[in-house]
Structures are given as C-alpha cells and as structure tokens.
C-alpha cells in the first residue's frame, strides 16, 4: 500500500479546515456537513464489504435505519444521553449484521445483492409494524431533541454536534485505516481477489465474510445514529430502499477501496440533491442514475481514482476489474498466488 508513504500533511490540512468550518459557516450548512460526516462513515462501512471484500450489498439502508431507530428510541423512551447511544447502536447493528450476514454471505455476488435488496425494500414495512409501535412510534416516527454542548462551552447546538460527529468520524476512520492496512485487510482483499487461494492460505472465508458484514453493519449503524441525532426525527418512510441505493451511489461515485473516496461520496450525495431539486422533484433520482452509469463507464474508481490519476499522471489508473469478483457465470482466469500478493501488497 502506498498509504504509508503518502504525506500526512493533506490529511492534517483537511482536518484543520473541517474544524475551522465549524466557526465559519451557517448553522444550516453545519447540519449538512454533519450529514456528510455521517454518510462518510456509512459509506466507509459499505466500502469494507463491497470494495475490500467484494461482497455487494444493496441493503445497508436497513442497518442505517436500525442505528437511527436505536438512537431515537433510547433517547426518547429511556433518556439515554446521545453519546451513549452510539456504542449501543454499534453493538445492535453488529449483531444484526452478523445474524443477517451469516446466511446471506454463503451466497455469491449476485444472490447477495438480491437478498440485501429484498431486505432494503422490506425495511419501512417492518418499521411500521404494529407490534413494534410502542417503541417505533409507527408511521408517526419519533421526534428527538438536539443535544446541548457540554461543559458550558460557548457553542451553538449545531456547532457542537458537528464537532462531536467530526471526532467520532476521525476515530472511526483511523480504526478502519489500521484494520484495512493490517492482516485482516489483507485477508479481505485476498478473499475478494481469489477466494480459493485465500482459503488455501488459511483464511476462514465464511467467518471473515460474516465478521466483515457485521463490522460494515456496525459502521453504518453508528452513521445512522449520528444521522438521526442530527435530523432530530426518524420515521419509516425516510428509510426506504432509496437510502441503500444512495449509499451505493455514494460509494461508486466516491471510489471504492479508498478512505478519502468515502468522504467524496458523502459530499456528493448530500449536496447533489440540493442542486438538482432546483430543476425538478424527480431530477435527483435521474441525475443520480445518469451519474452512476457515467462513473461506471468513465471513472470506475470514482473521485478517488481521479485524484490518484491527477496526482501521479504517469501511473496507469488501477483497473477496477482486478478489485472485484468476476461474475458467477464466467470462471475467473487462474491467478497465481504470487500475482495476488502483488495486487494486494
């Protein structure tokens, strides 16, 4: 990985800018930036599964919804402080992810996409279900209040929530970076590029995939909790299949297997609808669709790939094909173990 050699300066500058923004822009913009951070975490979670491990999920909106509802229910019904809802949401979503991933990940590529897509479509119905209404508030949803800054800090609620989310994001990104660069990240990529070779080298594929699914659901769940606290409201219809699709679009547009790509993707999915809605109510969807297809053809590694290409004009763009599992119909050409080591190392 070239990440080790990459200068740390741009990251520090970006962080400095992110902190400075808290004092420079309006509260509404800060709310949007908070959503950017939450989506960045969710997309990072999705990336671990799709980008690094090669398992396509179209249903991560479900875990986002579970995280959001966990936070909302705990805050509204049990008076749990907002910060304490995050670890609980993380645990619950990891549990759900493990339980769903265990059967689902025995299925290869397309079937997994299908099963998760079904999950995404079924979510709003489950949230509206009468038996859970005492907790979920049924169709009405739950309203929660924005947290006040602690220790008597002289910050507005939006400023504080933004800075809090920024801290959580930084911690989660650091953890993800270390994990993905380490032994486990290597095993994930090995499973993606050549499952058989990975197994031969001692990777327990089923266990690794299920754990990755749980981890990925956990990140998305934390993002959902942060998103719910920022929006101050959860309702079944805000967790339609579009949430899952939006995350997927953000991942592809931002660029798979890239931490920075997750942030780019999040910026894209937060700010594009604002611009597009000026044209028509239906425009965001159509523009999402067109841009998604355009990226898959022209810039398959997303914004992050573009940045890499600009930074090192001589280097050939990394083809995404090596990064992803071949379709079930076409047997993958045999790759030697040495080849795999070069690709992931």
């Amino acid at each position: 990985m070239s990440a080790a050699r990459r200068p740390i300066l741009p990251v520090i500058l970006a962080l400095g800018l992110a902190v400075a923004l808290a004092f420079l822009v309006s509260d509404y913009r800060l709310f949007q930036l908070t959503m950017v951070l939450a989506y960045a975490i969710a997309i990072l979670g999705l990336d671990m599964l799709i980008g690094y491990t090669g398992q396509i999920s179209l249903g991560h909106g479900a875990f986002y919804a579970v995280g959001a509802y966990t936070a909302a229910i705990l805050m509204a019904n049990f008076d749990v402080p907002y910060w304490a809802t995050l670890p609980i949401a993380a645990l619950i979503c990891a549990g759900f992810g493990f339980a769903f991933g265990f059967p689902a990940l025995r299925l290869g590529g397309l079937y997994l996409a299908l099963a998760t897509f079904a999950l995404a479509i079924a979510v709003p119905q489950l949230l509206k279900y009468k038996a859970f209404e005492a907790w979920t508030g049924g169709v009405q949803g739950i309203v929660i209040s924005k947290p006040d800054p602690p220790f008597g800090l002289k910050l507005s609620q939006d400023q504080w929530l933004y800075l809090f989310t920024l801290m959580v994001t930084v911690v989660l990104f650091l953890l993800a970076r270390n994990l993905l660069r380490g032994r486990i990240g290597l095993a994930m990529r090995a499973v993606r590029d050549h499952a058989l070779a990975a197994e031969a080298m001692g990777v327990d594929i089923a266990l690794l995939k299920t754990r990755t699914f749980a981890l990925s659901a956990m990140y998305t769940g934390i993002a959902g909790a942060l998103g719910a606290i920022a929006v101050q409201f959860v309702a079944p219809d805000s967790f339609s299949v579009l949430v899952s699709i939006t995350l997927f679009v953000g991942l592809v547009v931002g660029g798979i297997t890239s931490l920075a790509g997750a942030v780019f993707g999040a910026i894209f999915i937060v700010f594009l609808p604002n611009i597009a809605e000026n044209i028509s109510k239906a425009a965001p969807g159509a523009i999402y669709g067109v841009i998604l297809i355009a990226f898959l053809y022209l810039l398959p590694m997303g914004f992050a790939g573009l940045r890499r290409r600009v930074a090192r004009p001589g280097a050939t763009a990394q083809p995404p094909a090596q990064a992803l599992t071949p379709s079930p119909g076409t047997p993958s050409p045999g790759k030697s173990a040495a080849e795999i080591r070069i690709k992931s190392g």
Partner: peptide
C-alpha cells in the same frame, strides 16, 4: 465485474 453490472441496473432503476 458484478459490481459494475449491478451498478448499471441500479442506475437504470433510478432513471
């Protein structure tokens, strides 16, 4: 790869 074709289908769905 699968991701690209799934992506195109999702794009079509949105459009």
């Amino acid at each position: 790869p699968v991701l690209s074709s799934v992506g195109v289908f999702i794009g079509l769905l949105l459009i």
